[in-house]
């Protein structure tokens, strides 16, 4: 499948028909999720701040998942010279960076009323901030180096180094003392959240996944268009 989609023309031809459907599905799921966010009951301890969870958890989860995607695509680009791997990594990075900012912001706005502080330099929060710095570094390398292949190689190496941070984020709440709670959704023994609150959360997780998939497909297509433009210009100036 990965080799099948390595051809840019084929990638555009195969994915273009799905893009409007993904956009529509994402919008519908987001609307349904937002409705459920305000139709669900308040928490007996946290009150209405529990509604922040419906945003914080999906974006925090995706900030890590997208970085894993950037790392995997960079690996394929560096090792197998996959034609579209770098375009995919480049497309995912800004989306992941914005999602990380949202996760940090919503976390801070949840932390203040519940913990009494906007920020704490503990394992979870610091490692997510480091994740944002890796995203920024990746984007900055692509912006700073003009030669596309050199930029892809340097940014790819940085992306692979940054993968080390993902297990640190995941297990930080177990390894160190932290204000942040442990995992309560994706657990081996099942979620510990009441079903009334689990449904809005799952719908928001689905909505953010579909929207990010749509955004990434559009951004990869943008990169393909930019490459075609550069190739045509180079051909014209050569002739």
């Amino acid at each position: 499948m990965i080799n099948f989609l390595a051809n840019p023309e084929r990638f555009t031809r195969v994915t273009a028909p799905f893009r409007p459907w993904l956009a529509g599905l994402g919008a519908a799921l987001l609307a349904w999720g937002l409705y459920l966010c305000f139709a669900s009951p308040e928490d007996y301890q946290q009150g209405d701040t529990v509604r922040i969870m419906y945003l914080h958890v999906p974006f925090a989860y995706l900030s890590m998942a997208l970085y894993a995607g950037v790392g995997a695509a960079s690996f394929f680009g560096l090792i197998f010279r996959h034609a579209l791997a770098d375009a995919a990594a480049k497309a995912m990075a800004p989306v992941g960076a914005v999602f990380t900012v949202i996760a940090l912001l919503t976390g801070s706005l949840w932390g203040k009323p519940m913990w009494g502080t906007w920020w704490q330099w503990d394992g979870r929060m610091t490692s997510v901030l480091v994740l944002l710095l890796f995203y920024i570094g990746y984007i900055a390398i692509h912006a700073a180096i003009e030669d596309e292949q050199r930029a892809a190689r340097s940014a790819g190496i940085l992306a692979l180094v940054g993968l080390v941070n993902l297990p640190i984020i995941k297990f930080s709440v177990e390894w160190w003392n932290t204000l942040h709670q442990g995992s309560s959704v994706f657990r081996a023994d099942g979620p510990t959240i009441a079903p009334d609150m689990l449904w809005p959360l799952f719908v928001m997780i689905a909505a953010t996944h579909v929207i990010s998939a749509w955004l990434i497909l559009v951004r990869i297509d943008s990169e393909i268009l930019a490459r075609k433009y550069r190739a045509l210009r180079a051909k014209l100036s050569y002739n």
């Binding site: 409705y35 305000f38 139709a39 308040e42 009150g47 209405d48 701040t49 509604r51 922040i52 945003l55 914080h56 974006f59 800004p94 989306v95 914005v98 900012v101 949202i102 912001l105 919503t106 706005l109 949840w110 203040k112 009323p113 929207i211 955004l215």
Partner: peptide, 26 residues
């Protein structure tokens, strides 16, 4: 639907506003 966030209104609405704005911008 419950839109009355009581004393947590600032935190909840800032969260939703900033998130939707960021998403729309992206």
């Amino acid at each position: 639907l419950d839109f009355d966030m009581g004393k947590y209104g600032f935190y909840v609405w800032t969260c939703y506003g900033a998130t939707l704005l960021s998403l729309a911008g992206l």
